[in-house]
Design a protein around this nucleic acid. Structure first.
Lengths: 109, 109
DNA sequence: TTCACTATTCCGCATTGCGTGGTAGTATTC
DNA sequence: GAATACTACCACGCAATGCGGAATAGTGAA
């Protein structure tokens, strides 16, 4: 009923997609995701995703002092991250097509 | 990377969508899902989904003896199931739009 | 008879990944 | 110094899928 379960397996892709627009830190990433439509996304989920992606070698990370709070941890895509984004974009597209076909009663051929 | 995680939160919708084409039993439903594109879906996942949906009051169920094996358990949509399908179709559409927007770098306004 | 295979249903365990609630630290304002 | 915003992160729980296996029923082969 809610997006919770839909998010699974998609949040990493969403995070990578936001990161493609430019480097950011977790707190801001959450904000961007919510503005993009994932309103209910939890910050901890995003931090966890960032941790997983970074641990998997898909992201770069750099700590930058801030003047309005604690230091920010900026993340950015590296080569592997870009590859993964492309890859999972394809997976998503195929999946979405399958889903849409099913939902529309596919009356083609 | 694979569809495993993507399936979560979508399998029920997919099952309902297949059921809208007509009543069937689990084994055949698995076959239809695989033919539709969800190739890796596990039978136990589908049976679990059917059990959940039936338990939630979204399906009718009827056991029919078969001549080629054990009795089949036919499932069909009832009113609640149809409502749920409509509802989750909307949720899915919104979600997919959000995702696609993110992935396409949304250069609109 | 026993073995193997197809058809069909279902259970238990492990895993993955998101949410909730909580912790903690810095800067600003009162 | 108390409150509030900004920022990062952890531990625990839960939901849902996969995997492996079991059980039932029928058919055909060894």
């Amino acid at each position: 009923m809610d997006q919770t379960q839909l998010l699974k397996g998609v949040l990493d892709t969403a995070v990578l997609a936001v990161l493609r627009r430019g480097r950011t830190y977790g707190y801001d990433l959450v904000r961007q995701l919510r503005e993009s439509g994932f309103e209910g996304v939890g910050d901890a989920s995003v931090y966890g995703t960032l941790r997983r992606l970074f641990g998997g070698g898909y992201l770069t990370s750099e700590i930058v002092p801030s003047e309005e709070g604690p230091a920010r941890k900026y993340y950015g895509l590296n080569g592997a991250g870009i590859d993964m984004l492309e890859q999972s974009t394809k997976t998503w597209s195929g999946f979405a097509d399958t889903m849409n076909g099913l939902l529309q009663g596919e009356e083609e051929e």
